[in-house]
């Protein structure tokens, strides 16, 4: 393998993992925009997506249907999560919200362990495991699925926020809650929607990564932290930033692991996070300071 082949290989696998980070970061972004809080249970939605798809598939549900059911189930979990943690509270600080979501994430992780045990589980690849040659590098068919699905999800989320009335209403809530209330927008409903959407997007990420990376009850934590780093890297609150941050993180991680040492893989995310917070705290795409009136 020549150096350029190697580079290409790292970029390709980096983009694959990065698009997973991008989806998770997008989940953080949506909840942040609606509530100004970081939902530390975001990673658990990812884990639940993978675990419940495995469970459905194990119960002899055909793979595509198992994936769909898993997304629906996790979306419902997202709604319930909001319903029982945030919704009952009247006035809470952002710090309270964050602590509550951490508590909720521990609960979800524990429930997953009690339901499915501690073993790692997997799904079959969606289109087999014969590697595809791309110039000097190789690519698993599942990587194409990951890229394609992420692309479709990102595009769909974008269309939703730019064109759908409810999507615009969610942006309006993010921009100015008080004014949104004056428009007759149900702010609480929009917050619930943001949780449902972020859970769905997280579940998709958890499902498509499972054939290549396995899943287990405790995988949500690190994936959540990576997604969070990606969101900060891109500028928390920015959709394009989340995607950019995710891809960048994925590629740099793959380079670091490949050229330096795979032992440093996870450290790279946090190193980048600290660097970014020092150099450009608003992130890559967070040009504005505070958007609130």
């Amino acid at each position: 393998m020549t150096f350029t082949d190697q580079l290409l290989q790292f970029v390709l696998s980096g983009v694959m993992v990065g698009s997973i980070y991008a989806l998770i970061a997008l989940g953080f972004t949506m909840v942040f925009n609606a509530t100004e809080a970081i939902n530390f249970a975001q990673g658990e939605f990812v884990m639940l997506g993978g675990m419940s798809a495995v469970a459905f598939y194990g119960a002899r549900v055909p793979l595509p249907l198992a994936c769909l059911l898993a997304v629906l189930l996790v979306t419902a979990v997202g709604l319930l999560f909001e319903r029982f943690t945030l919704a009952p509270l009247k006035r809470v600080s952002v710090m309270n919200l964050i602590i509550i979501t951490i508590g909720g994430s521990i609960f979800l992780k524990g429930s997953a362990m009690l339901t499915w045990g501690k073993d790692a589980a997997s799904l079959p690849s969606f289109s087999g495991d014969t590697p595809i040659r791309v110039l000097g590098a190789t690519l698993l068919p599942q990587a194409i699925w990951i890229l394609g699905t992420s692309l479709v999800v990102v595009a769909a989320v974008r269309l939703f926020f730019d064109h759908a009335a409810v999507g615009k209403a969610m942006r309006a809530v993010a921009a100015n809650r008080f004014a949104a209330t004056l428009m007759g927008i149900d702010v609480k409903l929009m917050v619930a929607c943001s949780f449902a959407l972020s859970a769905a997007v997280g579940a998709v990420a958890g499902i498509i990564i499972t054939p290549v990376a396995l899943t287990a009850f405790d995988r949500g934590t690190i994936l959540g932290l990576k997604g969070f780093s990606a969101a900060i890297l891109g500028g928390i609150g920015s959709g394009p930033g989340a995607v950019l941050g995710g891809l960048l993180l994925g590629v740099l991680e793959a380079m670091g692991a490949g050229f330096v040492s795979s032992g440093y893989k996870d450290a790279i995310a946090f190193l980048l996070l600290i660097l970014m917070l020092l150099v450009r705290p608003q992130g890559l795409c967070g040009a504005r300071g505070s958007r609130k009136a």
């Binding site: 009335a165 309006a172 004014a179 007759g184 927008i185």
Partner: peptide, 20 residues
């Protein structure tokens, strides 16, 4: 203090007015 939706377009602000 007007409270327009700053990061949204004028057209989208108006659309939000007719949300119901």
């Amino acid at each position: 203090g007007r409270q327009v939706f700053g990061p949204m377009t004028v057209a989208d602000n108006l659309t939000m007015g007719a949300y119901l």
